[in-house]
């Protein structure tokens, strides 16, 4: 596996996304006003939503080598790039950035064929209409991870073969990891 190639391809992909919809941050600026964050300084302010792109981060601190942020509709192509590079999908999860009114879907990839190489791919989607294409066509193992993320965040994975509750009871009507979940 050529790490440089993978990074380049991901960079190209992220750049493409930026051309389509230039700034994620601008969406955040509308949805999550700065005043709200200042109102409660004791909870530290989450980092500014970053722009799409590829960052090579310090592995010793962050635990990953490459941090990629892309558009929601690009995750399948990112998965394909990483699949061709022989990487495996370790987990899918979400993060609820309620102040920005956004949900972040996080894909952790790792390389099992030799030297350690971890890539995290993240995509931010609207909190009001959380849909993102499924990567279970590329990695069948994503099936359960996406169902779990659907359980916890209510993120709708378009094209998923069986988007039902996996860990939560089948008749439940809440998504516990959303920050506005108040218990049931």
């Amino acid at each position: 596996m050529n790490k440089e190639n993978v990074i380049q391809e991901l960079q190209a992909l992220a750049a493409e996304g930026m051309a389509d919809q230039p700034e994620v941050a601008s969406v955040a600026a509308v949805a999550g006003p700065a005043g709200e964050e200042e109102a409660k300084p004791q909870t530290a302010i989450p980092p500014e939503p970053r722009r799409n792109g590829v960052l090579e981060v310090d592995y010793a601190v962050r635990g990953v080598h490459v941090d990629v942020q892309i558009q929601g509709d690009q995750v399948v192509r990112a998965a394909q790039i990483l699949d061709e590079a022989g990487m495996t999908l370790e987990a899918i999860t979400g993060v609820d950035w309620i102040n920005d009114q956004e949900l972040e879907v996080v894909y952790d990839y790792s390389y099992t064929g030799g030297s350690c190489f971890r890539v995290v791919v993240r995509a931010r989607i609207s909190r009001h209409e959380p849909t993102i294409p499924t990567v279970s066509g590329v990695f069948p193992g994503a099936n359960w991870h996406e169902r779990e993320t659907f359980d916890f965040f209510g993120i709708h994975f378009e094209g998923h073969p069986q988007l039902e509750y996996l860990l939560l009871p089948e008749d439940c009507d809440f998504h516990p990891l959303l920050k506005d979940f108040k218990g049931c």
Partner: peptide, 22 residues
């Protein structure tokens, strides 16, 4: 603040935690 990832080899395979700190 930021997010962190750490994986260890548990008896059954990769156990990893992704923690997001604010």
């Amino acid at each position: 603040a930021g997010d962190y990832y750490h994986a260890v080899e548990a008896a059954r395979g990769t156990f990893a935690i992704r923690a997001v700190s604010d």
